[in-house]
């Protein structure tokens, strides 16, 4: 019984939150890695792109809620998501035409593009705060739980409850669907193949008649979709606050680099590595330990390795270890 309780407590506080968070990071990191693979720079504006996409979705959600449209038990935000993606695509394609295109034509050094993306970051950050304000926004509706802790206790008779929130379920399902669709697109369709070819060897791709502007356009569209989905899922799961999205930049980059920049599989693996280490290292293990260890050995303290405020430190240390021992990441990424 105690072992079962321990497993339930572990799933409740570590496994499920980490899988949900990992899926959100993976979607974010996929966007970063796509930009790195095809446009060949680290996009500092990615966190704010996520915030922008999520913001459009939230505005449409509010509008739908005011009209009385809803998805029943599911959050209305899912219905508003396509509009958010369209809004984000519009913004990204516009920035590409207005800003990045000029530097691409010049064949500017990657680091210049990074600085340019810093400027875009300022603008997007300002734009989001301008429209929706810097405060927390709630937009989740529908059922809160798929299984609540109480129902679970009554169902199984265990003393430990397991809460599985709708937002976590949606996050996991959506992430799986999106990743499958993305890989199908990259591996099976003509456009996807041309994108991979362009990423692998630009000159060869150009020689074989691939239109670079088209590849770039599709990349931005994919990135907008991924960023908006990641942003909305994160907002549903936690809450929407522009500054938090800016701070997500660090774990997202850590995930992309740990996996190997430019490698989509790596981005997913990296997302989960970062999420699981953050959650396990900042989780207070007292509860699980109490169930598993004999009474004499029960810990007095919380058995928490680091306080939750140091979660940045965790992603950072993992990033550093990977960079020192395997500079191209777990799955061999590319180096520009």
């Amino acid at each position: 019984m105690d072992v079962l309780n321990a497993i339930v407590a572990l799933s409740n506080f570590v496994l499920i939150p980490a899988i949900a968070y990992g899926s959100q990071l993976a979607l974010g990191a996929l966007g970063v890695t796509l930009i790195y693979g095809i446009l060949r720079f680290s996009n500092f504006a990615h966190g704010d792109t996520m915030a922008f996409g999520a913001m459009v979705t939230i505005l449409v959600t509010w509008w739908m809620q005011s009209l009385g449209i809803s998805l029943g038990p599911l959050p209305t935000a899912l219905l508003a998501l396509p509009f958010g993606i369209l809004g984000c695509i519009a913004l990204l394609v516009l920035t590409d035409k207005a800003v990045y295109k000029f530097y691409r034509a010049q064949k500017a050094k990657p680091v210049i593009l990074v600085i340019v993306s810093m400027g875009i970051m300022f603008i997007m950050n300002g734009l989001v705060r301008f429209v929706i304000g810097p405060d927390d926004q709630r937009f989740a509706d529908g059922e809160r739980f798929i299984i609540s802790a109480r129902t679970f206790r009554e169902m199984t008779g265990l003393s430990e409850g397991l809460a599985f929130r709708t937002s976590q379920g949606i996050t996991i399902v959506t992430a799986v669907v999106v990743v499958i669709a993305l890989f199908w697109f990259l591996n099976r369709t003509r456009t996807g193949k041309s994108m991979r070819a362009y990423s692998d060897n630009e000159d060869l791709a150009l020689l074989s008649g691939i239109n670079p502007e088209r590849v770039v356009l599709y990349t931005w569209m994919l990135v907008a979709g991924l960023a908006t989905i990641a942003g909305v899922l994160y907002g549903l799961d936690k809450s929407f606050k522009p500054f938090t999205y800016f701070q997500l930049l660090l774990p997202i980059f850590a995930a992309a680099i740990v996996g190997g920049l430019g490698s989509p599989v790596g981005a997913i693996a990296g997302g989960f590595v970062i999420a699981f280490s953050e959650v396990t290292i900042t989780y207070a293990w007292k509860k699980v330990a109490t169930y598993l260890l004999p009474e004499a050995l029960e810990p007095d303290g919380l058995v928490q390795l680091l306080s939750t405020d140091y979660k940045f430190a965790v992603s950072f240390v993992i990033l550093l270890i990977v960079l020192l021992f395997r500079p191209t990441g777990l799955f061999k990424g590319k180096a520009v």
Binding site: F41, Q247, A254, F312, S315, F316, L319, L320, L324, P327
Partner: peptide, 21 residues
Amino acid sequence: KTALGLRSDYLAIATLGIAEI
């Protein structure tokens, strides 16, 4: 000592992280 051998954008992420820490 740890991060300077890395490529430019890795150094950027590393310094961004250190500042947060």
